[in-house]
């Protein structure tokens, strides 16, 4: 589905936690459908908070947020039916097997038992987990766990996928596998919002990047634009200059 309407759109998004001050201090985002958008910033910048709000897991104080054409504050069910989320803390059940995880979450996505089994088969195959399918997830390597987490988030072919630091703590090979999966998703039309601390990751995957520092947007543009805006040769330099200036 190609429309002019952004797949993710926020305006002046604000949220503060009691006693801790503002976590988000007016975030504006506009992510065109079918693109990979990076949310880049140091720890505590508000990246995860933004993702949690957009995925209906946290509330916000003021501003507006729309995901896949749905108002996040008013139509949580509508948003939930259209999103997937995978995080740095892989939220899969460690005691169940990979297959049992996929089937359970597919059932909770309102699939029938047979449909859920078929979808689990498909995703196990796609993410190279067939051999480990029957084993408890506790015994999976970090990369396998992350692949399962990603597979679970794709059960219902979401329009918008939130990836919260999807490669943090992964070895280089697993990281490349996750990158390939993200590219394949974007090619098939899924909108991806990706938070990361890795500049190389943002540079390689994202068509546009929003830099966030202390809950504010400090820069926005394509990787090339951000590099040239500070006259830097690479994104690392741009990142340091921009975040220091903020």
């Amino acid at each position: 589905m190609i429309t002019d309407e952004p797949a993710i759109w926020t305006q002046a998004l604000r949220k503060s936690y009691p006693g801790r001050g503002a976590a988000l201090d007016g975030i504006d985002l506009a992510v065109p459908a079918g693109t990979v958008h990076g949310l880049l910033g140091p720890n505590g910048a508000g990246k995860t908070t933004t993702v949690r709000i957009l995925a209906t897991l946290a509330s916000f104080d003021s501003g507006q947020a729309w995901v896949a054409g749905r108002n996040v504050a008013r139509d949580r069910a509508g948003v939930r039916a259209r999103i997937g989320i995978a995080g740095q803390y892989a939220a899969v059940d460690g005691i169940l097997s990979g297959r049992q995880n996929l089937e359970m979450f597919a059932r909770l996505h309102r699939m029938r038992a047979r449909e859920a089994r078929a979808r689990a088969d498909e995703l196990l195959e796609r993410f190279d987990l067939v051999e480990a399918a029957g084993r408890p997830v506790k015994g999976y390597s970090g990369g396998m766990r992350r692949r399962l987490d990603l597979a679970v988030s794709l059960i219902r072919s979401p329009r918008v996928l939130f990836l919260d630091e999807p490669t943090t703590g992964l070895d280089p090979r697993s990281r490349l596998e996750v990158w390939d999966a993200v590219r394949e998703l974007a090619d098939s039309g899924t909108t991806v919002l990706l938070t990361t601390q890795y500049l190389e990751e943002a540079d390689r995957l994202c068509s546009r990047i929003t830099m966030v520092v202390r809950g504010r947007v400090v820069a926005e543009g394509s990787p090339a634009e951000l590099k040239s805006s500070v006259g830097g040769r690479d994104l690392d330099e741009a990142f340091l200059l921009i975040t220091e200036g903020a």
Partner: peptide
Amino acid sequence: MTVSISGAMTDAVTPH
């Protein structure tokens, strides 16, 4: 081996 990850993008509306 390429199985499409995302299949047809149908919204997960709650069935009847």
